[in-house]
Design a protein around this nucleic acid. Structure first.
Lengths: 251, 251
DNA sequence: TGCCGCAGATTTATCATATAATTGTCGTTG
DNA sequence: CAACGACAATTATATGATAAATCTGCGGCA
């Protein structure tokens, strides 16, 4: 096994994420990323997790780097370490699924329709509630942000913006407009999940017809009509759910 | 400032959390806990965050321990570090609120009615949806778990169990019964929030009257009636919200 | 036989020190 | 005044040594 966490020969095609970019930043983050993916994809489900000195040898880095990477994975709930017992992978229920790194590892390496459906089941609870709160907490600035997202979607319709990124921008703006930090917390989660699920949604080209549905959400929030905002958002995400159900039935 | 992360003279009154118990486990976890609390309570909002060598001196530990604690806080979104620029506290929007440690630090040290209300706004979206899913995914084992939680609540009514812990057990069982890992993820969050909010809810003694409401949720899930399960859970949490609103009005 | 306890081995935890890499600052120079 | 280069501060990495925790198995003792 030849692990290249130094990234000497890696060509990083995606330049999407600006700041948190895991891999190439330094040895610790490179190891974090590689190990994280390995864990969520089940490489150590039957094999025991290596000792820190074995890991250091395997990845050709110092024990400092190894220990720091392991500590970060521990902080995210993926690992646990005890003297003499060694380091071991935690059961998946302990993983912090709302950590953007963990979710990205899961979706990038283990994408499944089932996971997408479960995630959409979450969105259909969160986003309508966020829209309802946004309608109550509405002010000039928040509405402007949502409006900007909608305008980008409209521009994307005409080919002047990216359809996926503008869609994400709209939903993020609604979450933030809820004025509730717990809802705002889902920003990263929704962004990560939508970005990686593009593989799936791209197969259905008729989906951009939802522009009018997005406008219904925007309008209701502007009017301060929380109930309408909620139901409009429910319908929007329910349509996504229908797509997934269809795909699952075919598969 | 005298930081006792070694816990030599600390008497740990709570023994509640069994495994993840932050403080006394070792120096790294002790420092993680102390630093985490300090950050969320705003100690470094105007003061710059110390360099790692300063931290090591201040806490009387080696740089290894310091770096590993800082790395864990970085993994939880509280810090960011760059060569020459030093380590600095991230804006609160980047904090991983659904990390049990972060939420605990926030609630233990910074408890506010406002935070509790925002959290309840989240629960009123999550838990009813989880109950609805649970009604669909119901099987013998899952129903038994919810039933066990309910039985504990009934026992607590008679003084034979802890009212808070049994209440938590019921809600956790519903989240798990949703058979959706994203909902199950809220286990720790709900547990942490309910445990720390006991200070508040304990002032209202009439609240245990909700036993019948919990039974309504249980019954609906047993019947596979997702709509009833959902509305029953909404009512249950809406009552909590009323308590909070009352308290906020008085304050 | 069966149990208790101790010695050894293994692995993480901690410490200490040295060197490299990154990048902001400031002065110099054209 | 701008661009470049030397310096300095801070994190990043490497290495080696020692401590602490705890599992395993051996041996003694009742």
């Amino acid at each position: 096994m030849n692990h290249d966490i130094r990234g000497d020969g890696i060509l990083d095609g995606t330049g999407a994420r600006s700041e948190p970019a895991g891999a190439g930043r330094n040895l610790t983050y490179g190891m974090l990323d590689t190990l994280g993916k390995a864990i969520v994809t089940g490489r150590y489900d039957d094999a025991p997790f290596p000792t820190e000195s074995d890991l250091a040898k395997e990845y050709a880095v110092s024990r400092s780097v190894t220990r720091e990477a392991v500590k970060m994975l521990t902080a995210k709930g993926l690992l646990t370490a005890r003297p003499r017992k060694g380091t071991s992978v935690q059961p998946a229920v302990n993983w912090n699924l709302f950590d953007p790194d963990v979710l990205r590892w899961l979706l990038e390496r283990k994408f499944s329709l089932d996971l997408l459906r479960q995630f959409t089941e979450l969105r259909i609870a969160i986003e309508p509630a966020a829209a309802a709160l946004a309608a109550r907490a509405a002010n000039q600035e928040r509405i402007a942000a949502i409006h900007a997202g909608f305008d980008r979607m409209a521009a994307a319709e005409a080919g002047d913006d990216d359809p996926l990124e503008s869609d994400i921008a709209f939903h993020i703006a609604v979450l933030r407009a809820s004025a509730n930090p717990f809802y705002a917390q889902f920003q990263d989660v929704v962004t990560t999940a939508l970005r990686t699920s593009i593989r799936f949604t791209n197969r259905f080209k008729g989906r951009t017809a939802s522009l009018s549905q997005h406008y219904a959400v925007l309008g209701a929030i502007e009017d301060g009509d929380s109930q309408t905002a909620k139901t409009a958002m429910v319908e929007l995400i329910a349509d996504v759910m229908v797509l997934i159900d269809d795909a699952e039935r075919k598969a």
